[in-house]
Amino acid sequence: MNPRPDLPFVLAGLANVQRVAQLTGPDSANRTDRVAIAGTDLGSMFEADGKVWFVFGDTFGFREPGFTGGGGEQWRSNALAHTTDTDPADGITFDGFVVDEHGAAKELLGSEKVDFSEMTVIPTYGFAANGAMYLAYMSVRHWGEPGEWEVNHAGLAKSTDHGQTWAKLAAPTWPGDSNFVQVSVAEVDGDLYFWGVMHGRFGGVQLMKVAPTQVEVPDAYRYFAGTAADGTPSWSDDRAAARTIVDDTVGELSVVWSEHLSRWLMSYTNGGGAGASLREGLTPWGPWGDAITLVSAADVPGLYSPYMLPRYTADGGATIYFTLSVWDPYNVFWYRADLVSRA
């Protein structure tokens, strides 16, 4: 999975960016109101147990007509769907959700739901390791101005029963003002790499890694601290030594390997007003190319959280599919885009 850093950037742009389907809500083909989901957001994806798992944030079972943004009745801080759908061309059909005894989508990670204490607990990404499933989460103290929020800490939760129940781990955790509050996770050459950003959407990206067998060992994490003259990466056990690898207003992000381009792709909410952005990386730590608009805020007002998964591509990887949240109607949608390579 090592690209050719001697070659220039190969991604010229995007074409045929289109909405394919609505994934959540009463108006979706999945009719998630049947599991008490009238509105939800996020929708990051990971693979485990032969399924793809979709991870959602604040979830509401009933919303008055015309309600804008997060809110409503039957509030749960998070929810989890699974699918075996392998054809992304017409949307994704969920096989089911993790549900409670009443058949409603179950809150996986509990929260106090008290403003300025712990408003909610939002899972930012999932991954599988050591026969278990993990969710990276952030404990949100307070939602502030648009694109900004206060966080108590970030951490990991674990499930050993195929996603049915979850326990927050005492360690590792990261401070709420660190650069690893929101993460994207991928396996690279036998290690788990975490690309991280701060709370909100107004900072850059840093990188850390850990062996899968040591994911629960705080001192096992190593932080990217720069490269030598020959491009060899340097890793430090000191979080303060972490270098910023993408300097931008980066919010919710996902990073995947593109077999089609032999490059890394990073999608994210651009807090600078550019909507959803896409960048090409020569290695996991860069260099990373300029931001390309994936979906503009002018075309889709209130968009955020563009998440990719390597398996959801077409045409040999030349077409990518991704989730995208929209503040009004506060649900998750399925999009596609064609990667345009340089001649």
Score class of each variant (00 low, 15 high):
31 R>T: 13
4 R>S: 14
341 S>H: 05
223 Y>L: 13
22 Q>H: 03
314 A>S: 09
335 Y>H: 10
132 A>E: 09
111 S>C: 15
54 F>D: 00
330 Y>N: 05
329 P>Y: 11
73 E>N: 11
29 A>L: 09
49 D>H: 15
199 H>G: 15
73 E>V: 12
246 V>C: 02
159 S>Y: 04
199 H>A: 15
326 V>K: 12
246 V>A: 04
289 G>A: 13
114 V>R: 08
127 F>Y: 09
13 G>Y: 06
276 A>S: 10
125 Y>I: 02
191 D>A: 14
101 E>Y: 10
291 A>H: 03
159 S>H: 03
184 S>M: 05
245 I>V: 15
332 V>M: 13
155 G>H: 12
165 T>P: 04
160 T>H: 08
297 A>K: 00
188 V>D: 11
313 T>N: 08
274 A>E: 10
29 A>R: 10
288 W>E: 06
132 A>W: 02
23 L>V: 14
30 N>C: 13
132 A>G: 03
119 M>W: 04
247 D>L: 07
137 Y>R: 07
242 A>N: 04
156 L>V: 06
204 G>H: 11
277 S>W: 04
16 N>D: 15
118 E>W: 05
262 S>R: 13
216 E>S: 09
332 V>E: 08
189 D>L: 13
173 T>E: 09
24 T>V: 09
167 A>P: 03
194 F>W: 08
5 P>G: 09
335 Y>S: 06
250 V>P: 01
50 G>F: 02
122 I>R: 00
86 T>S: 14
263 R>S: 00
322 F>V: 04
29 A>F: 04
122 I>C: 03
335 Y>T: 02
206 Q>H: 12
199 H>P: 07
198 M>V: 11
221 Y>Q: 03
281 G>A: 08
265 L>M: 06
208 M>A: 13
265 L>C: 05
80 L>S: 07
193 Y>Q: 09
147 G>Y: 07
165 T>K: 08
308 M>S: 04
71 G>T: 11
270 N>C: 05
286 G>A: 14
243 R>I: 14
186 A>F: 05
159 S>F: 02
339 L>Q: 02
97 F>W: 06
248 D>Y: 07
39 G>N: 05
147 G>C: 10
151 V>L: 01
203 G>K: 14
35 V>Y: 06
288 W>T: 03
256 V>G: 00
292 I>F: 05
52 V>N: 01
223 Y>W: 15
88 P>R: 03
269 T>Y: 07
225 A>D: 14
233 P>F: 09
173 T>F: 08
209 K>W: 11
158 K>L: 05
313 T>D: 08
276 A>Y: 00
193 Y>C: 11
132 A>L: 05
130 N>S: 12
265 L>Q: 00
154 A>T: 12
189 D>Q: 15
